[in-house]
């Protein structure tokens, strides 16, 4: 077994070690974020620190999704390095479809004042028709892309929860609708912020907001650029 799994829990009792490993498996592999009440190692601050120390040498970090809700994500410094390698697991067009869904399900509803919570998880569906009609992407590419995006948890099919009297309205035959998927919960605060900023830079490059973002990034002292330091876990303990 990799020393990371043992080093982080070396000082713990056997029972606590099991708790931390179970929590590791849960946050890393579960499709959805977990509530603290489900895992001792998420609610107990000491064990949570051990969990964070287990995740850290594997390039991962704990992500707080909401009150009492946790999952894991890529460390910000690791994400930066990996994205510089320019290796992509998703085809270009899939990523484009995904961004369209973020625009229709998050950005536009936000501009319309329909979303209250500050999260990339949205309840505003994007219909396949919107994706086809209001974009330059080829129809077939959108369809195959959506299948891969669903499998990776970047998007999910939206439930049709409209009351029956509303179902007769505009998009009855529009086919399925989509929402951003559970994988978005794994974005760290810095990654969430970066996604927002990249969208603004791309869509509104000549707005004062884009200028403010560029100015902010040009000041390395502020959190526009994170230093590659580990906020919670420390490197030294892993090698001991």
């Amino acid at each position: 077994m990799h020393p990371a799994f043992t080093a982080a829990v070396a000082d713990l009792s056997e029972r606590h070690r099991d708790e931390v490993l179970a929590a590791y498996a849960a946050v890393e592999h579960s499709w959805q974020p977990l509530h603290e009440s489900q895992m001792l190692a998420l609610r107990d601050a000491t064990l949570r620190r051990a969990l964070q120390q287990m995740l850290h040498p594997l390039g991962r970090t704990l992500v707080k999704v909401g009150p009492h809700l946790w999952t894991s994500g890529y460390r910000d410094d690791i994400a930066r390095e990996l994205s510089e390698e320019m290796l992509e697991s998703l085809p270009l067009v899939d990523r484009a479809v995904f961004v369209l869904i973020l625009i229709h399900s998050v950005a536009i509803p936000r501009s319309q004042g329909l979303i209250d919570q500050d999260t990339w998880i949205s309840n505003q569906p994007t219909s396949v028709e919107e994706l086809n009609r209001y974009s330059r992407l080829p129809r077939t590419a959108v369809r195959t892309g959506l299948a891969r995006l669903r499998a990776s948890g970047l998007v999910q099919i939206a439930p049709d929860r409209r009351p029956h009297q509303a179902r007769g309205s505009s998009n009855t035959n529009a086919g399925a609708s989509y929402l951003p998927g559970p994988q978005l919960a794994r974005l760290t605060p810095a990654a969430r912020r970066r996604l927002q900023e990249e969208l603004i830079l791309a869509a509104g490059a000549d707005t004062p907001l884009a200028a403010a973002i560029r100015a902010r990034r040009a000041r390395p002292s502020e959190d526009g650029v994170l230093k590659p330091s580990a906020p919670e876990a420390t490197e030294t303990q892993e090698n001991s």
């Binding site: 799994f5 099991d18 498996a25 579960s30 977990l34 489900q38 299948a147 948890g153």
Partner: peptide
């Protein structure tokens, strides 16, 4: 290779779901 108690196979036992498979 995840250790035996830390792989995706333990989700079932804990009552959590892994990736949705169509």
């Amino acid at each position: 290779a995840h250790p035996g108690t830390a792989g995706p196979w333990v989700l079932d036992e804990m009552g959590f779901s892994g990736p949705t498979i169509e």
